[in-house]
Design a protein around this nucleic acid. Structure first.
Lengths: 218, 218
DNA sequence: GACAGTGTGTCACTAAGAGACACCTTGGGT
DNA sequence: ACCCAAGGTGTCTCTTAGTGACACACTGTC
């Protein structure tokens, strides 16, 4: 009869951690040998679980890539989540970015490159492309809540959804662009200036939402 | 040694027609009994082909839904494709819509409702959601060419891609909204005024692209 | 009428993913 | 200390999504 709120919450996070763990191995294998050549058994063995358990946590093979993709945008998403209403997007991103160096664990860097490899693979593997899009679909839902909050539901719900969708779309395109740039190793110079990158994101979001997302509220 | 340009072109269109045919049956079955309960054999039998042939035309079961989804947006996409540079988006859509009643074959209406059923199903079936997103990913690529053409590659390629992505995103959200409205049968009144709908699309695209797509060129 | 090319059917096969059941943790109550 | 309920996992089994290989049918060309 007694609920266990801590147990439930713990389980959810435990589950998320496990999914990420599996996803890391899966993404690595996908990158090293391609999606088709990677079997569920192989993923299971790599992460030290039974194959059956893999399918308990992922609805199919491609979707094993989703958590690393989500992890790749988690940084930006976290920043947007903590965006206080009274600040402009540019100010907030700049501030977050300033205090980012110390609190970002090194593991995130590995995840970041893994996520970039996934989008690269998505160019040739339609299955991964759909996983990539599904991950951003998730981002869109989260952004929808945030934009709904900032717009205070003054506009229609539909309007909020469009803003969220447009913002997510430009974020995705920027991610694809940056990912490609990093992996080709072309010019890392444009990435070096983190503030320029954040300004780029902020500007893109502002444009895509017709200015609805960007300005401080009230 | 001799190419057959007519034959090749014919094949491509023949293939597209066949894919659509298969897709219609698949979508119908998906809607009637759910995706999981619909087998490849069943789709094959419904369309009068061997199962093997189904998998020659579609990489997996879910993607069987893509052609009807594409068909669902083909109307709008066609309009945007024929958008002359010297007209505004609003004017062009209104003009196209005026001369639309006569040239739209009735079969399109059935496809339209089928497409709407698919997005409805996508709410509960992640596999269909990814098919839906993949179809719009295709739309985005097409829009990318169009926007690149209209912007004359004056802006960066990246900018064109962001505009295309944002525009596609709002079109998708509007489609989802309209589809939901039609199927719930709530108020068809807001759909009755075709011109209002087209103005809605035009406005959304204009906003999402920061005005980059909408105005006449030069 | 022989020919190339392309699309389809049939058969055999691999692997994705689910169902059923037993086991083993964890954590809480007595 | 003991038991018990809940939920995650392994093992076994089975269905079916999806592929490879090969033969056959169709179509247009020389």
């Amino acid at each position: 009869m007694t609920e266990m709120p801590s147990g439930g919450g713990m389980n959810e996070r435990r589950r998320a951690r496990l999914r990420l763990e599996i996803s890391r191995e899966a993404a690595r294998l996908f990158w090293e040998q391609g999606v088709a050549a990677t079997s569920g058994d192989q993923i299971a063995k790599a992460v030290g679980l039974s194959t059956r358990t893999i399918w308990r946590h992922f609805r199919n093979k491609e979707s094993c890539a989703e958590p690393v993709v989500m992890q790749g945008v988690a940084g930006l998403l976290g920043m947007v989540r903590s965006w206080p209403r009274e600040r402009s997007l540019e100010d907030h991103l700049a501030a977050e970015l300033a205090g980012l160096g110390d609190k970002t664990p090194p593991v995130d860097l590995a995840d970041q490159t893994l996520a970039m490899k996934m989008i690269r693979l998505a160019d040739t593997e339609p299955a991964l492309r759909s996983a990539w899009l599904m991950a951003y679909d998730q981002v869109e839902r989260e952004l929808c809540v945030i934009s709904g909050d900032r717009l205070g539901h003054l506009g229609s719900d539909l309007e909020g959804r469009m803003h969220a969708a447009a913002a997510t779309a430009v974020i995705r395109v920027l991610d694809e662009h940056l990912g490609a740039a990093v992996l080709t190793g072309a010019d890392l110079s444009e990435l070096a200036d983190a503030e320029a990158v954040s300004r780029c994101f902020a500007h893109a979001i502002r444009v895509a939402t017709g200015g609805a997302l960007g300005d401080p509220i009230d």
